[in-house]
Amino acid sequence: MATRKQARKQTLVQVLALLIAVVVIVVAVVLFQSWSNNRPGAHPKDIRVTATVGDESIEVAPYLVCEPGTECPEGEVPNLYVGENDTLKLDIPDDISRYQWQVLSIYDDPAANDETRHGAGETEAVEIPGSVDPIEASDSQDRPKLIVVEVSAVLIGADDNGDEAPYSSVWSLSTMSDEELAEQENM
């Protein structure tokens, strides 16, 4: 049977072990949070927006990425058909949604074009209708059909010297049918 002195010593060792474990856990959490908050994000050219219509989904790479005031080489514009009664869903990754960003919806009737702005951290997904009700100011009574969607933001990336720099970034997506695309190319 342990004496009272031995029991106190054992309790003291247990309390010290518990205190050391708590200190180690707190230090690990603080170091992880510091690392997580200070690690560099993806370069804007590597960020992808996910576009979905029904069961079909594609990753959209940036169409334009450049430092403000520099010439911007154009990239490819992918196509994902969006029918009149379909809805296009755009999933915006955290590397974009944590900043201010906007979506420009371009329809075949310019009066129906729309731009929505989103504040930092407000939303990570948007839905855009494949067609909208005719605009009163328009000459046409047909439902304007979605033809292009653009997501744009000014993001931070590393320049050629490894320093942080702002980048104007645009992700562009065509939503036309194959026939409409062929007609556009023949113009």
Rank of each mutant, 00 (worst) to 15 (best):
D95W: 05
R98Y: 07
N37S: 13
I135T: 11
D142P: 08
I47N: 04
V24C: 13
I106E: 11
W35H: 09
P40V: 04
G130C: 13
E71Q: 10
I156F: 00
T123N: 05
N79K: 12
I135Q: 08
G69E: 02
G83W: 03
S36G: 02
E115L: 14
E185I: 15
D109F: 09
T52D: 02
Q33D: 06
R8M: 15
D109G: 02
A61V: 10
D86T: 03
E180D: 14
G119H: 07
R39V: 13
S172K: 15
E115T: 13
I147V: 11
D139K: 11
Q184A: 15
N113G: 06
S97W: 11
L80H: 06
D109R: 04
P166A: 01
D91A: 15
P110L: 04
D109L: 03
G83L: 10
V53W: 03
K9L: 10
E150A: 14
L173K: 02
S168P: 06
I135V: 15
Y99L: 11
G41Q: 07
L146N: 01
V15D: 01
Q100F: 14
E150L: 14
P134S: 06
S105L: 03
G157N: 00
V149G: 00
W35T: 07
D139P: 06
A51Q: 06
S138N: 00
V151N: 05
D108H: 09
S168E: 09
R143P: 09
T175M: 11
Q100A: 14
D114A: 12
G119E: 02
V60R: 06
F32T: 09
P40T: 04
M176D: 01
V13E: 09
S174Q: 13
V65M: 04
V27K: 01
V170Q: 06
R117T: 07
N37I: 12
L155W: 01
V22H: 01
N186H: 10
Q6C: 02
A137C: 06
D142W: 10
A125D: 08
P110F: 10
